[in-house]
């Protein structure tokens, strides 16, 4: 029989309402309150071996100590699953459920499941760290919540993999993954086309991006003749031994190299490690990616004040938006710290 631990607050433990919200963390044997409903639903497949209880205010007064106590209790009982809540639309209770569920999984490898109203505050905070089933917004929907959480909990306890959120009826964690499907792509494409033609409802399998927030343009350079200009590229131009091990695709790193080194372009010569374009022309002449010769000619003519001592490089193919934004932010910070006034970016 599978062994399940359960976390609830002071209200569901029968201690009391808001006036008892400072009830301290405690551990009880067996099922308490809604745990009994879960035990009924589990039947012979699982039992509730332990119930962790904490008052809503008490938990948030010292979350670290309470989490430590919860982890210690779970480490001792070694359950196959932790169920937290359901907490419905509750704020403090939901967040405590999320924190304890995430800690059980991350610190002890125990799968965890919470029940939450899809718009509850804890959903966005903990959705990537634990598994959630949607519930109604109040304890009036306890029966339905237990009925949908129990089978999902048993699957997690048995170590079964998740199915797509829609099939599990889960609140989405938010990642995408390929699954095998019975319906051929061509059939889906033509069915969707005919539905769209007839004005019938259809569901795109990938939704369009929400519009990128426009970036307010930076102020223009007042006097180019006094300005120091930096060169930045996503074209993967690095010394040929790639000392910083910048990835040739899906980059997580950037580096800067002295402009003098690029001008010399020998021992080491510069090459592109970018895996998204044919680099033969850039390898033959790196100025085709980082236009140093042209910028130097313009400096000699007094068009600009100076050239920043370093150029900056990363690889922009298959690079995730998350890493791309971080890389851009880090480069920008460095450029500002170094007193650069404007930047020329080249990209493939």
């Amino acid at each position: 029989m599978l062994r399940v631990a359960h976390y609830i607050n002071q209200f569901f433990a029968g201690i009391g309402g808001e006036d008892k919200a400072d009830a301290p963390f405690e551990v009880r044997e067996g099922a308490v309150g809604p745990g009994r409903a879960f035990a009924m639903e589990f039947g012979d497949d699982a039992e509730i071996v332990q119930t962790l209880v904490c008052g809503d205010n008490a938990f948030h007064a010292d979350p670290e100590a309470n989490l430590e106590a919860a982890v210690a209790a779970l480490a001792e009982s070694k359950p196959d699953l932790l169920i937290a809540g359901p907490a419905f639309n509750a704020g403090r209770y939901g967040l405590a459920c999320g924190a304890i569920a995430a800690a059980a999984t991350e610190k002890l490898g125990i799968p965890a499941l919470i029940g939450l109203y899809p718009e509850a505050p804890a959903v966005d905070v903990y959705r990537v760290r634990t598994v959630m089933m949607p519930t109604g917004d109040s304890a009036g929907s306890m029966k339905d919540a237990v009925a949908s959480m129990a089978p999902m909990g048993l699957r997690l306890a048995r170590g079964e993999p998740l199915s797509p959120a829609e099939e599990d009826g889960r609140i989405p964690i938010g990642y995408r993954k390929a699954v095998a499907t019975e319906v051929p792509v061509a059939h889906r494409a033509v069915e969707m086309l005919l539905a769209k033609l007839k004005g019938e409802p259809f569901e795109s399998e990938i939704s369009l991006p929400e519009g990128a927030e426009p970036v307010p343009p930076a102020p223009a350079v007042d006097d180019l003749g006094e300005a120091t200009i930096a060169l930045v590229t996503e074209g993967g131009l690095v010394p040929e031994d790639n000392p910083d091990r910048i990835e040739s695709s899906s980059a997580t790193k950037w580096a800067r190299y002295p402009i003098d080194m690029l001008r010399a372009n020998t021992d080491p010569a510069f090459k592109s490690i970018h895996a998204g374009y044919d680099s033969q022309w850039v390898d033959a002449d790196p100025n085709r990616m980082v236009p140093l010769d042209a910028l130097e000619a313009l400096r000699a003519e007094g068009v600009i004040g100076g050239i920043h001592d370093y150029f900056y490089a990363t690889t922009g193919t298959g690079t995730t938006v998350t890493h791309g934004e971080r890389i851009g932010g880090e480069i920008a910070k460095q450029l500002i710290a170094d007193g650069v006034q404007a930047v020329i970016v080249t990209s493939t």
């Binding site: 102020p219 404007a342 930047v343 970016v345 080249t346």
Partner: peptide, 27 residues
Amino acid sequence: MIEKAGLPAAHLTAMTAMAKLAGANRI
């Protein structure tokens, strides 16, 4: 991100539509 940080950045590329989509300003 460079423009967001307040530095004007000109973006030279063959893929101007992609640059626009990515949020570049001076393309």
